Amino acid sequence: MAVTNADFRRMIAGSRGAVAEALPPLTVPDRLPHRFEPASRLPARAEPRTIEIVWAPAAPAGGRWLGGLATLAKVLAVPVLLAGGLYARPVYECHKQKSHGMLYYGTTVQMCVGERMAEKVESVQAFVNRQMRAL
């Protein structure tokens, strides 16, 4: 059983839950280069072809809460991953030093992490100062 173009457009609009009727098809001329018959250099007679594009209304946005939560998670994930990436290495190194007994007497892991973070900030400040002097 063949489906006509009008039936196809109604089927597309119905599957998307559209209230409005689908727009009529847009006919675009075929832009293939001219073909030549092999025996002569005369253009071959080709049947005119058209390309039919079916326009249908967009599907209604379902699950707006889910999309909003996904966007919020993406926005909040960047600062969390950045802070975690900067903070994770000093914490790991300090816990490793503690487990091997390499921390000074009375030094806690939290103090060690604070010292490491201060060293990072100082190195970044020194880098910025060098760059500013170079300009």
Rank of each mutant, 00 (worst) to 15 (best):
T108I: 06
A70D: 03
R16D: 06
R130Y: 06
A88H: 04
K120C: 06
G68R: 15
E115Q: 09
P25C: 01
L32K: 10
I53H: 12
Q125D: 13
L26S: 14
R35S: 11
V113T: 09
P25I: 05
P90I: 11
R35N: 02
A22I: 05
L82H: 03
A126R: 12
L76N: 05
Q125Y: 00
R49W: 04
L135F: 07
R64A: 13
R49S: 11
S99D: 14
Y104G: 14
K98H: 08
V54L: 11
M117P: 01
L81F: 09
L42S: 11
P57H: 01
Q110T: 13
V121Y: 10
C112P: 10
V124G: 01
V109F: 02
P90M: 11
A126K: 12
G85M: 14
Q125S: 09
E93S: 03
V3E: 14
A59F: 06
L72Y: 02
I51D: 12
M132K: 10
R49T: 12
V3S: 11
E52I: 10
G62L: 15
N5M: 09
F8R: 15
T27D: 08
A134L: 07
R9T: 14
G85Y: 13
R45F: 10
A61F: 10
R35G: 05
M117R: 14
A56L: 01
S123R: 15
S40M: 00
T4G: 14
P24M: 00
E21L: 02
R89H: 03
D30E: 08
A77S: 09
